[in-house]
Design a protein around this nucleic acid. Structure first.
Length: 414
RNA sequence: CGGGGUGUAGUUCAUCGGUAGAACGCUGCGUUUGGGACGCAGAUGUAGCAGGUUCAAUUCCUGUCACCCCGACCA
């Protein structure tokens, strides 16, 4: 993509209302645009990042045999009445039609997925199975905040599993837990697994995946020596206490919840009276699990974790482009055509490249733009580079001159 | 929803009872080109909205809306 054609260019300053890092940088760098509190448009650069995260999550969900579907956001009132959510869940957005029918906007999809799946499951032979989607969720939060970390509308992967027994569910939970940790690792994040309360709808314990960041809204106690971690909401210990698992010392920190898993038990099968025949030929309700992962929130958390005073520093796995190609001295025909040539060659090699081809823009401004946008590799072509490419990584200070061939080799390694 | 803050040009802000200004951005021309260049010329506003006070309101008062922050909330 040519930067000169990009309609969402960087801003000189972040908007004054932005205070959190992700809000400031994502807006200033042209990744998102705020429509209202907690609701954002994802612009070309931002959508590319969102898609990258989504694809990493999709591959892992497919790997644990999740079957991807796309379910409706607009829900009839009746399914929410069936489960008791209509009157109890205050974050449920409710809307009226012009014929005065009432609807809800999906804040979670158990009410849709349970009848969808169970109407097709007859016997234990059809279980276990797991269904997921990646879609928008709506929650009527009293206060949206922190940029894209807490929106009223957000992009989320939600998976639901159906099991014959609690044992089978627990086994699958462990599988998904490992899968989640793999996802966060691929995203460049270190997630801690906490025990937390399951909220009013589940009496069972749920597990939350937490990434330490001051922009987060959860307080967690964690052990620096082992992977013990607990949400202070349910913690029976405090900072400085010995870790119940290894005896180490507990620290407290702010964290953002980037995923969770719930043991739903048999609630939804029972609510909808949807059962299957078990091994003894008796009617049985499925044990269900629910696995959420906030894609848009993860994008915000990544920005909170990876930035410096100049801008964002995207991990390579989610960066909108691999290379930020800067053409300097573009008023000189030979330099310009050389940069164009390299741009085309990189594209031919299948490498995602953002080409800053602007002519009447100073070198300083182009460098500042590149630092703000945060693409991993910056390549400069100018009259000083004399046929070579000047390569600099966003998170390093040093530059290196190399041929296109060597650059391709370098990229192949990373 | 309670508390606090902010609404003026595209953006960041100034002006503060007498009819609106800077910087950046934008347009044109020229000079520039290795860290957000320079010169000249130009365009851009119902001062969030609605009332009220006043000879006169962007400015004071009331209400309202929006955004940000703290809290509550976040199956």
């Amino acid at each position: 993509m040519k930067y000169s054609k990009l309609f969402s260019k960087t801003l000189r300053q972040p908007p004054k209302e932005a205070e959190t890092i992700n809000h400031k940088l994502l807006t200033q760098a042209g990744f998102v645009d705020q429509l209202m509190a907690g609701v954002y448009s994802y612009l070309p650069l931002g959508l590319r990042v969102l898609n990258k995260i989504e694809q990493i999550v999709r591959e892992e969900m497919d790997a644990v045999e999740g079957q991807e579907v796309l379910m409706p956001i607009l829900h009839p009132k009746s399914i929410w009445e069936t489960t008791g959510g209509w009157g109890k869940i205050d974050v449920l957005f409710k809307i009226n039609s012009r014929t005065e029918k009432e609807y809800a906007l999906g804040q979670s999809e158990e009410e849709v997925v349970t009848p969808l799946v169970m109407s097709r499951v007859n016997t234990y032979k059809d279980l276990p199975l797991s269904v997921y989607q990646i879609h928008w969720k709506f929650r009527d939060e009293l206060r949206a905040k922190s940029g894209i970390l807490r929106g009223r509308e957000f992009y989320m992967k939600d998976m639901y599993s159906f099991h014959e027994t609690q044992e089978d569910f627990l086994k699958y939970y462990e599988t998904v837990k490992k899968s989640y940790l793999k996802i966060y690792e691929k995203l460049g994040l270190t997630a801690k697994v906490t025990e937390a309360s399951g909220g009013s709808f589940s009496e069972k314990i749920s597990y939350e995946f937490m990434v330490l960041t001051d922009a987060g809204e959860d307080d967690i106690l964690y052990c620096s020596d082992c992977d013990f971690c607990v949400n202070v909401e349910i913690a029976k210990m405090k900072v400085g206490d010995p870790c119940p698992r290894c005896g180490g010392k507990l620290d407290q920190a702010k964290a953002s919840e980037v995923g969770n898993v719930f043991d739903l038990g048999q609630k939804y099968g029972k609510d909808f009276n949807l059962s299957f025949l078990d091994r003894e030929g008796k009617k049985s309700f499925p044990i269900m699990g629910c696995y959420g992962l906030g894609i848009s929130r993860v994008m915000g958390v990544i920005v909170e974790k990876f930035n410096d005073e100049k801008g964002i520093i995207w991990p390579e796995s989610v960066a909108p482009f691999k290379i930020h190609l800067i053409g300097l001295d573009q008023s000189e025909e030979n330099i310009k055509s050389e940069a164009e040539k390299v741009y085309k060659q990189l594209q031919t090699e299948g490498i995602e490249v953002l080409f800053d081809d602007r002519v009447d823009v100073s070198a300083g401004e182009k460098f500042a733009t590149a630092d703000l946008v945060g693409i991993p590799y910056r390549i400069v072509i100018s009259k000083k580079t004399e046929g070579k490419l000047e390569v600099k990584k966003r998170n390093e200070k040093t530059t290196e001159f190399m041929s296109l061939e060597d650059l391709l080799k370098l990229l192949a390694k990373s």
